[in-house]
């Protein structure tokens, strides 16, 4: 394959991806660009209740389309982002939020990264202290010096 063919195929793939991504989202016309920006942020933050791990911006499930319409309606009614999220959370539970609140059910979700970092630090400290304790014999030191001397 020539470089040109590869380039052509790549361009086609990118175009196809963009086209399918665009076709998923309903063409809602907002008069107000600020409102449209908030709409895009909200539909990216809301999870489709039917499809486990897709936001409602990226899902073509009918329920996701209904939810986008509901978000748009509430935006045009002048509701705040907080009110819109709360409205949908009341109906679909924490499940619908990709940014879930801290609660007994989600505490592990939030704490796990911190716990992993802590465990990692502990392991690093132990490995570090063990390395310090290594003492070289005379022979080993001589060999090390010899190896070091070969370096440019």
């Amino acid at each position: 394959m020539t470089g040109r063919t590869v380039l052509g195929i790549t361009a086609l793939c990118i175009a196809a991806t963009l086209a399918s991504a665009a076709s998923l989202v309903d063409a809602y016309d907002f008069d107000n660009p600020a409102l449209e920006a908030r709409y895009r942020t909200l539909i990216a933050e809301l999870r489709c209740p039917k499809c486990l791990n897709v936001n409602i911006a990226g899902s073509d499930a009918p329920i996701a389309s209904d939810l986008r319409r509901a978000v748009r309606r509430m935006l045009e009614e002048g509701r705040s982002d907080q009110e819109i999220l709360a409205h949908l959370q009341d109906r679909y539970g924490d499940f619908i939020l990709y940014n879930p609140p801290l609660s007994p059910a989600t505490v592990l979700l939030w704490a796990t990264p911190a716990i992993l970092v802590l465990v990692g630090l502990l392991v690093l400290r132990r490995l570090g202290s063990r390395r310090d304790a290594v003492e070289l014999t005379e022979d080993e030191r001589a060999r090390l010096d010899a190896l070091g001397a070969e370096d440019p």
């Binding site: 039917k50 009918p62 329920i63 209904d66 319409r69 509901a70 009341d90 109906r91 679909y92």
Partner: peptide, 13 residues
């Protein structure tokens, strides 16, 4: 028909 009451009810199927 459009599922608006459905959204108000939290219906997802």
């Amino acid at each position: 028909a459009r599922g608006d009451l459905g959204v108000d009810l939290g219906v997802y199927g």
